[in-house]
């Protein structure tokens, strides 16, 4: 049965390739919503950007959001594959094992997942790509900025659970601070949830009570913490998307993950008949990570001279990361 569907999918893909005018069709599985101001939104924005660039007649995508139940996500992935989509993006590290089951049944459909460096070629699977944002690089840069911005010498971070990108970002953040100013005290707390806005907010308040004047964090529940930072007039450093629209005078910098840097080469490879096996890193070096500084927030915290100094040091840090002079290890 599965083989039959796989065959149908294959025919569909071949038809796509033969009729050059046919659009490239992408299906994406998102664990949260397209407007979460974090992980899922960053992917949605990348797909919108690609569509804008290639034109709607050449690039189309559909999405399933809130796919936090893994079994449902797996069913959705299989269904999209059977419908003959060219590329299926399983946007979450929790979806990897499902791909191992599904991908072999659809050898001419391409799959991509992350954050990871596993493409399962060792299992004889050749149609899975992986993308790997180097969150620790982003964390490091935000750490440098935090160390330059703090006046109290106390900085806090708020994460969901201590794994994956959140863990890497936190490790980079702490190292960035220590390398810039070893006297600054930094603590990172994990609230055990991606959705508990109240606890994220309370963690932020507790940090402020303890004297922190710069906070950072990853995942969608941090909107609660950003709101506290805004209320208390302290600084927030964001990740995933540009979070400054949430609090223009509070969010001094955001590390933006630009998934197009991974997706565009993947699309090109698929068009050339390569369906997987590559790991696509997202780094400052290849533009997969971007720093967005928000002058409106910086001007409230630093003098013009200090801002120039900060920017100089931040660009220098970026240069060193790109050149490999700074290497961030995560244990």
């Amino acid at each position: 049965m599965m083989r039959k569907i796989g065959f149908v999918a294959l025919v569909l893909v071949m038809v796509d390739l033969i009729s050059l005018g046919a659009p490239f069709r992408v299906a994406v599985i998102l664990p949260s919503t397209i407007n979460d101001f974090a992980w899922s939104q960053s992917m949605y924005e990348a797909l919108m950007a690609i569509q804008e660039e290639m034109g709607e007649e050449n690039f189309q995508f559909v999405y399933s959001e809130n796919m936090y139940v893994i079994a449902d996500a797996a069913a959705a992935i299989r269904d999209y594959a059977a419908q003959g989509y060219d590329l299926i993006i399983a946007h979450g590290s929790q979806y990897g094992s499902s791909l191992v089951d599904i991908a072999p049944d659809f050898p001419k459909t391409s799959f991509v997942w992350g954050s990871t460096a596993q493409t399962f070629t060792e299992l004889g699977i050749h149609n899975i790509f992986a993308y790997a944002p180097h969150a620790e690089e982003g964390g490091y840069v935000n750490g440098v900025i935090a160390a330059l911005l703090t006046k109290t010498g106390i900085i806090g971070g708020i994460g969901p659970i201590k794994t994956g990108d959140a863990k890497r970002y936190a490790a980079g953040f702490e190292k960035g601070i220590k390398d810039t100013n070893p006297d600054v005290q930094v603590n990172y707390t994990f609230i055990g949830s991606y959705s508990d806005v109240a606890l994220a907010s309370e963690a932020a308040r507790t940090f402020v009570n303890a004297g922190a004047d710069v906070l950072t964090g990853t995942a969608q529940m941090t909107v609660g913490a950003i709101s506290v930072a805004k209320e208390k007039g302290i600084t927030w450093l964001g990740y995933d998307v540009d979070q400054s629209p949430l609090a223009p005078k509070t969010v001094a910098a955001s590390i933006v993950v630009d998934w197009t840097v991974a997706l565009k080469p993947i699309i090109a490879m698929i068009r050339e008949g390569k369906y997987g096996g590559e790991i696509l890193p997202l780094t400052f070096a290849n533009g997969g990570l971007k720093l967005v500084l928000n002058d409106a927030a910086l001007e409230g915290k630093l003098s013009p001279a200090e801002i120039i100094e900060l920017k100089a040091l931040v660009w220098e840090t970026l240069r060193k990361i790109v050149s490999g002079e700074i290497i961030i290890e995560v244990e």
């Binding site: 919503t33 979460d36 959705s195 529940m221 909107v223 209320e231």
Partner: peptide
């Protein structure tokens, strides 16, 4: 009052 934002399933 306390958070001044809304998110899906925010009561958790």
């Amino acid at each position: 009052a306390l958070l001044n934002v809304f998110q899906q399933n925010m009561t958790n």
